[in-house]
Amino acid sequence: MKSTDVLMAGFGGQGMLLAGKLLAAAAMAEGLEVSWLPSYGPEMRGGTANVIVCVSDEPIGSPLITSHRGLVVMNLPSLEKFGPRVVPGGVIVVNTALIDREYEREDCVVVRVDARRIAIDAEADRAQNLVMLGAYLGATETIVPYEAVEEAICKTFSGRKARFAPASITALRRGIAEGRRAVLPVG
């Protein structure tokens, strides 16, 4: 059985729910089973927003996971809350633009990404969420191909929003590169 899960968290408006949706849509297009479970409590009103995405080649049991294989965090409160819940061997993607402290988990892969700088460089300053998603994809042996995610971006940014697609894909790709670099063997 191939499967994975990731929790993506940040402030409301930072695009974590959308990033998760793109991942879920890409996985579905690949014929995989997916679930996308958002937090919908009072925290969505200006607090933190998070989503758990599960991907598997078999029907998904519980969409609610409390120990995660992947974690993507945009802000410090999310890191503090969910960091300890990542299982040994998991991947944690940290946005250094808003989290300026080190995060120690020797049993995990910690990918540090300045999502803001990379997004601005890609001329897509609003696509910081996609930089983070890319970094997660790059750092994991994910079962969802990158192309499927790009495809999902094109589908989401269609019509009047189509002009955002190219820069969004650039942001995603640069994120992927960051993620891959982080897991390259030292040397």
Partner: peptide, 10 residues
């Protein structure tokens, strides 16, 4: 329940 209402699945 709210979880099924809010969750996305294919």
């Amino acid at each position: 329940d709210g979880m099924i209402g809010q969750m996305m699945e294919p």
